[in-house]
Design a protein around this nucleic acid. Structure first.
Length: 426
RNA sequence: GGAUGGGUGGGUGAGUGGCUGAAACCAACGGUUUGCUAAACCGUCGUACGGGUAACUCUGUACCGCGGGUUCGAAUCCCGCCCCAUCCGCCA
């Protein structure tokens, strides 16, 4: 969530930012409400603190009087303390109430877009940051979409997944499974080469962790839950990996923290089913390699660019036609200040598929998570968090299969040969 | 799942009702000494939210797993919850 201090001191910038997300005057009123509520919180706290301070002093006096055997005088003070207590109880309730109101309001405000983020409402307003200028792969007229290719070459099986679990849980098999594993290994190796430390986190997380990265309360419906144990299946490795640093105060010299993890991701995608979701285009369980960085605020936008370059390199090595979009305010995620999406061209479907999203969250996550560092002057500041998919598998596989189909079989890009052990699927 | 023992600052760990935001030690940081390193010595060394200030200093409150209760006063006593460790059972 946004920092109160920033909302108060930088109100204009925040309001302008929210306008870029398409916020109207009526919605923007929440900013004033937040400031008013915070004013009430402060004045209530002052009253309460003063009362408690008096209480403390009197209590000490009573103790001394009792020690000296001056019982009558002590009793007189006790009466005053009792009155204070009544009052402070009331104030405490008020204070808790105001604080809750304030938090509830803060939870409704998304991150303020960076100044370079274009204004816009929907995906149509996104800017192409890097277009694909080379020709698309030329496929035969009877080119098959990946779900047909999967049947033809026995690579994965949706019906079987339905039998075992339900729709959206594919079973990969044979060379399809091997390809999956090869990609995971390839992506991890590339991340490690780029200086990320690999971690293998739990796939189930507790409530605090889900709250830390903002899945709770914003995206609760997106997650699968284990109610009995009060745990959540992770929708992305971002959740456990970023939370590794929750409630930490890092020394400045340890920045940036660079972590990577391969995990399956579980998403309910409730209500998201419609056109264009056949095959691997949208599934409930998919594999993803995530890269996470915790960075000094002064350097986080350089770091964002560096992460974009890393993902670009992956695309190039896999010989996939891709483009990079700079998301407009209205299409950005709730927590993000700036996001680049990567899309690969899916030859047989003749459409772009989103395979990566690289974002700078600035202090939006770290504020909620209390992820801080001690700067050169010894002051404690919130760190910036960034993350990106590098890469999400299912759709990459879809594009790979479709784009590389030939009459002789499906060509595997050279970069993967040493991982797959085969050059063609036939 | 059953039994027992625990949760205190970055770590170890003392603390049973007021003198405790918390001893001591370790780690860390700064300094003295030193040719360098080490050792020794000195010093600093929790967080959050307020008030005040031009600013540093100053100042109030809260926090000893979480929530509630008793009391003039709670890290300390009582109740509920959560978590952890060990043993047994089960098991990859």
């Amino acid at each position: 969530m946004l920092q109160l201090k920033v909302i108060r001191e930088d109100k204009k910038r925040i309001i302008n930012g929210l306008r870029k997300r398409g916020w109207q005057a009526a919605q923007l009123k929440v900013i004033e409400r937040i400031i008013e509520t915070d004013d009430r919180r402060r004045s209530t706290q002052k009253l309460l603190d003063d009362l408690l301070a008096e209480n403390k002093v009197l209590s000490k006096e009573i103790g001394q009087l009792m020690g000296q055997g001056k019982k009558a005088e002590a009793d007189a003070l006790k009466a005053r303390v009792a009155a204070i207590k009544d009052q402070s109880r009331q104030l405490e309730e008020q204070f808790a109430d105001i604080k809750k109101q304030l938090d509830d309001l803060l939870y409704t405000v998304p991150n303020c877009p960076h100044k370079s983020v274009p204004k816009g409402k929907t995906a149509d307003d996104n800017k192409v940051a890097k277009a694909w200028t080379k020709p698309f792969p030329s496929l035969p007229a009877d080119a098959l979409p990946h779900w047909e290719l999967a049947k033809k070459y026995n690579l994965f099986d949706f019906e079987l997944g339905v039998k075992l679990t339900g729709a959206g849980f594919p079973v990969y098999r044979g060379k399809g499974a091997k390809l999956q594993r090869a990609l995971i290994q390839f992506f991890l190796d590339e991340a490690i080469k780029a200086g990320f430390e690999e971690v293998i986190p739990p796939l189930l997380v507790n409530e605090d962790t889900a709250r830390g990265t903002g899945q709770l309360p914003d995206k609760e419906a997106q997650m699968y839950t284990c109610e009995r144990d009060n745990l959540y299946l992770i929708p992305t490795a971002e959740v456990p990996v970023t939370n590794i640093l929750r409630d930490e105060i890092l020394p400045e010299k340890s920045l940036p923290v660079k972590l990577t993890a391969y995990t399956p991701c579980f998403r309910r995608e409730a209500g998201a089913w419609g056109a264009h979701v056949r095959g691997l285009n949208r599934v409930h369980q998919f594999d993803k390699i995530e890269i996470v960085q915790v960075e000094h605020p002064d350097r986080s936008y350089q770091t964002l660019q560096q992460m974009v370059r890393h993902v670009s390199k992956l695309m190039q090595k896999l010989e996939l036609p891709y483009r990079i979009l700079l998301l407009c305010g209205g299409d950005m995620g709730f927590a993000s200040a700036k996001t680049f999406d990567f899309e690969v061209w899916s030859g047989a479907q003749q459409r772009w598929l989103e395979v990566s999203s690289v974002s700078n969250f600035e202090t939006f996550q770290s504020n909620r998570m209390q992820l801080r560092f001690r700067d050169a002057e010894g002051k404690i500041q919130l760190a910036h968090t960034l993350n990106g998919s590098a890469l999400a598998l299912a759709r990459v596989v879809a594009a790979l299969l479709e784009n590389n189909q030939t009459p002789e079989g499906i060509r595997i890009p050279k970069a993967l040969w040493k991982y797959t052990g085969f050059k063609v699927i036939s």
